[in-house]
């Protein structure tokens, strides 16, 4: 039996078990079943797909874009100037240990219910990993290759674009694969704490209405977002970063 067949089979078993358990408990607000979740998803499709999903997607995409910009910039600076590395690396580690969930309320105080508060939560949960992975990638550059470029007369800029960037690319893509789910979680948490739309906000509102199936419906969409995003990154990786195994 193929690996993905096994995966599908075990998923089916879990779903069936869950359905049976939910039917036995018979309290949808506490334990919604897979079927009731799908039913709610269908019933609420208009507001979920047209209002809340786009709002969350916007935060994830903008937040990741910001995190990538910040992360790449820091990684490049740290690679170019050892002093910068010594200065900011410890700070980065400290920032990484901050639980976004706990600090996000502060963002709401600072920025109100604005987009910035939510973006900050996404950036904070992702940029560290992007920075460190990319930095490691840049550091992986083989000295001999760099010297070979020098013997051709290449300066720092040429060496950076023709050698360092391709060397670090596999690491950078890996960091995106790792951080995308965190971006989704960060966005949902930020919406829980301060937003007027989005899947996080929606699930919180449904929670107060004791509509468990609707909560699960939005969680399902969040998971799907992460899964689709990761598949996309994996596809790009396979298609464009064919030298990964040779680094």
């Amino acid at each position: 039996m193929k690996k993905n067949h096994v995966g599908l089979l075990s998923a089916a078993v879990v779903l069936m078990g869950w359905q049976l358990l939910a039917m036995a408990v018979n309290m949808t607000h506490i334990l919604p079943s897979p079927v009731s979740t799908l039913v709610r998803l269908w019933e609420l499709r208009e507001s979920l797909f047209l209002t809340h999903l786009p709002a969350t997607l916007e935060i994830i995409v903008l937040g990741m874009a910001l995190a990538i910009i910040v992360g790449l910039l820091l990684a490049i600076l740290m690679d170019m100037f050892p002093t910068v590395e010594a200065m900011i690396y410890p700070t980065l580690v400290v920032i990484q240990t901050i639980p976004v969930m706990c600090i996000s309320p502060l963002f709401v105080l600072w920025f109100g219910y604005s987009l910035w508060a939510r973006l900050l939560a996404v950036v904070l949960s992702t940029f560290f990993t992007i920075t460190i992975n990319t930095f490691d990638g840049l550091k992986n550059t083989k000295r001999e290759m760099q010297e070979l470029m020098q013997t051709y007369g290449a300066g720092r800029l040429r060496i950076f674009f023709k050698l360092k960037v391709p060397t670090a690319l596999p690491n950078f893509i890996t960091s995106l694969k790792i951080t995308l789910p965190w971006a989704v979680i960060g966005a949902a948490i930020a919406e829980w704490l301060g937003a007027s739309k989005g899947l996080g906000y929606f699930s919180k509102r449904m929670m107060t209405k004791l509509d468990g199936s609707a909560v699960f419906a939005s969680v399902l969409l969040l998971s799907l977002l992460a899964l689709i995003g990761i598949s996309l990154i994996k596809w790009i990786d396979r298609k464009w970063v064919v030298w990964r195994s040779e680094m």
């Binding site: 001999e144 070979l148 680094m247």
Partner: peptide, 17 residues
């Protein structure tokens, strides 16, 4: 001077990309 010699290293050092 510039470009007065061409160096071939021990390892091929071909760029895999």
């Amino acid at each position: 001077l510039k470009h007065y010699c061409s160096y071939m290293p021990q390892k091929d050092l071909l760029f895999p990309w």
